[in-house]
Structures are given as C-alpha cells and as structure tokens.
Amino acid sequence: MGRATDPTVRGGAPSPAPRPLRDRLRRGVTPWLFLLVPLALLVVFTYAPVINMIAYSFTDWDGVSPDLKVTGVHNYVDIFTRPELFQVFFVSGYYLAASVVQLAAALYFATVLSFHTRFRNFFKGVLFFPYLINGVAIGFVFLYFFQDGGTLDSLLALFGFHTEHAWLGTPASANISLAGVSVWRFMGLNFVLFLGAIQSIPSELYEASELDGANRWQQFRHIIAPSIRPILSLSVILSISGSLSVFEIPYIMTGGATGTETFVIQTVKLAFQFNKTGLASAAAVVLLLIILAVTWVQRRLVPDDKVDLV
C-alpha cells in the first residue's frame, strides 16, 4: 500500500511557505517611512517655493500687499527687452573665466598630491581650508585686502612696486579681484572631489603603465583623465551654475557697485529694495531655466557613461 503524498512536497523537498501578508506590507512600507521626513522637507522647502515663485512671476506683486494682479508674461518681456536688467549677466563672464582657472588649478594640485609628495597632507589642508571659512568673513577680509593702501598694496611695496591702486574702483579691476577671491575660496572643493576620484583609481593601472614606460603626463592623459570624467563633469556643472548665481562675495565687498552687480544681486534688490517681487520672481525663473539648459547641454555633450581607459 503506497504512502499518501503530501501536497506541499514537490520532488521530495518541502516548498517554502508563503510569506505572511503582514511581512510583505512591512517590507514595502518601511522604506517609505524612512523617506517620509526628507521628502516632506524637500517638498516644503524646495518644490513649494519654486511653484510659488513661478506663480508670482506672472503677477505684479510687491511682496507686501495682499492684492496682486496677473500680468501674464509682462515681467519676462521686461527682462529680455530692458538692457539694464539682462546685461548684468555679462558680469558672470569674469566668474566663468575664473572657474576655468579654478578647475585647472584644482586638477593640477589633486594630481600632484595624489602621488607621493613631501608634506602632501599639509598642502591638502592648506588648499581645502578656504572652503571651510564663512563667506561673510572672507568678504570682509578681502575688502581690507584690496582697499587703497591695504594689504595688497603693502605686499607689492615689499617687492618694490610703490603704488596705491583702486583695485575695487573700476569695473574691470573690481570684477577681476572678486573673481580671484572666488577662485581662492572654492578651489578647495574641486580639489577634494578630484583628489578622491584620483585616489580611487586602482594602483595596478599605474604599475602596468610604468612597466610600459609611461611618464606622469601619459598616466594623466590615459588613466587619470578618463577615470575622473564623471567627477570632472560634475565640477563643470557646479562651476557654471555657481558663476551664473554669484551673490555672497560681490554683495559683501562692493554691494554691486562699480559694475559688479550680478544677476542674483539685481534680483534681490528688485524684490527687497524696489518691492518688485513679481519681476524678481521672473528673473529667478529665467536664471533657473538657464542653469537647467546649460546642465542639459553639458550632460548631452559629455555623458558619464563614456569612460574608456585607452
């Protein structure tokens, strides 16, 4: 007489018991519980203000009165047809040029200090330290540094250049000086990003290249540069967006005077000094769209997946 076959046994091995519904719900809900607070903060402090800003950009709201009138695209027409509103973007050209210098210097120092160099930990701290300083403090320090007869003139006098130049007195010299301050301050961030990316490259690649007789330049060209392309792409995006949205240093050092007014400084003045919140919101939307467009173009030209060690 044969034995009764257990329906839960298939092929001689018991089939796994179905997972209880409570466990499946718990596994599905738990990740969202952890994300609930960050998502709520993101919506409240990022997406909701952006939506309100876009809505205000189509009105003539002054930022104080509860009454506002819808003006359509009138604010956007003003931005693109009034030269005094849009020409401040040309000031960003100084900071774009400074960002190129900044990236090149950060990449150079990161490459040099990624190899065995004497006192390299000391130099790493020196390069990264300016990024840790508060921007307001940096603005006041360099305000005295560039003033007539200030620290810079005293240093030049030590080398025989006895002159007192108004470094912040003309648009060209003032913007160059302010852009130079931004290079000094933000180079440490790009330096750390590049250094981390370079040090993550396997040492076997360097050893194999040395066996093939490659020098430092060839190692940089064929190993380092392709390997850090995603980080370099990120740094370029951050530098371009930062150049277009400069605010802190020029606002503290010059207040936007002497031809140093940036687009963000102008937007703040429109909102809080001239009570044109609707126009200021439109300007902020324009800046946001320009940054998104630049980022999209850059990502299309240099996609992250094209990393080839050749």
Rank of each mutant, 00 (worst) to 15 (best):
R3V: 09
R3N: 03
T8F: 01
G11C: 03
G11S: 08
A13V: 15
P18S: 00
A40D: 02
A40Q: 02
P49Q: 08
M53C: 08
S57A: 11
W61K: 10
V64G: 03
V73I: 14
N75P: 09
F80V: 15
T81M: 11
R82N: 07
F90R: 15
V91L: 13
G93V: 12
G93C: 02
Y94D: 15
L96M: 08
L96V: 14
A98G: 12
S99P: 03
A105W: 02
L107G: 03
F109C: 13
A110N: 07
A110H: 12
S114Y: 08
K124H: 12
V126G: 03
F129T: 13
Y131W: 11
G135E: 04
V136Q: 04
A137P: 03
F140E: 14
V141H: 00
F145G: 11
D148I: 11
G150W: 03
D153M: 06
H165A: 13
L168I: 13
A172Q: 14
L178H: 07
G180K: 04
V183R: 07
L189A: 02
V192E: 03
I201S: 03
P202T: 03
P202E: 06
Y206K: 07
E207G: 09
E210F: 00
E210C: 02
E210A: 09
W217I: 15
V236G: 01
V236K: 01
L238D: 09
S239I: 07
F247R: 12
I249A: 03
A257Y: 00
T262V: 07
V264S: 02
I265P: 02
F272H: 13
F274A: 11
K276F: 01
T277P: 05
G278H: 01
G278S: 01
A280E: 03
A280Y: 08
V286P: 04
V286S: 02
A293L: 11
A293E: 06
A293M: 08
V294I: 15
Q298M: 01
D305E: 14
V307I: 10
L309H: 12
V310Y: 00
V310W: 01
